[in-house]
Amino acid sequence: MLNVADVHSYYGRAHILQGVSFALPAGAVMVLLGRNGAGKSTTMKTLIGIVRPAQGRIEFAGADIAGWDTHRIARAGLGYVPEERRIFTDLTVMENLEVGRQPARDNRPPWTPDRLFALFPNLGRMRNRTGGRMSGGEQQMLAIARTLMGNPRLLLLDEPSEGLAPVIVEEMANAILALKQEGVTVFLAEQNPHFAARVADRATVIEQGRIVWTGTMAALQADEAARSAYLAV
């Protein structure tokens, strides 16, 4: 699904990604772990094209998307849910979803507001509420639903559990597992090890701009050294 090879990215003059390489198989839920400032967010932003990689290949759905414009990457089927959610607070739930709408792809049934409201029942009860009048948890669900309206092949989630109450984080985890059932591939950056362990079947760890560990979640939890280094509390 996604094949990243030796990607370098700069943020201003700071060399953040220093040769990131990993592969993500279709249908997987993979978590990107790492310290703050290790390059998790920059990896996500580089994949969607908000940060342009200085070097390297990003193969996605049969094309090298490195250097493409963000909107073109999104149309190729990469969905991005940013940190801090970035809901359009002046727009209603329905309008937020409309902004995300893109044509169906791969002969799969397209996501519609009704299907999304089945996944996130809370949203269905506030169709005409503006984003600014929703709680953090509701905004996070809307952010994911909005991106799903683009019928992405791969969903990037940057810290989806950040700043949310535990009971909401749990709902979020259930929603991601439901998406996995639907066959959506998910790549998420996460700081909450419990959440990561619950939803992910694969993990990759970034440190100082380089990938230092990749494997299945089971392998990570079995590897005592890696587990205490990357999943420790």
């Binding site: 559990s161 984080v169 749990e170 979020m172 959440f195």
Partner: peptide, 12 residues
């Protein structure tokens, strides 16, 4: 009920 949930994603 209102906050902690079952604890599966917050350390039990």
């Amino acid at each position: 009920a209102v906050y902690l949930g079952s604890g599966v994603t917050s350390g039990g």
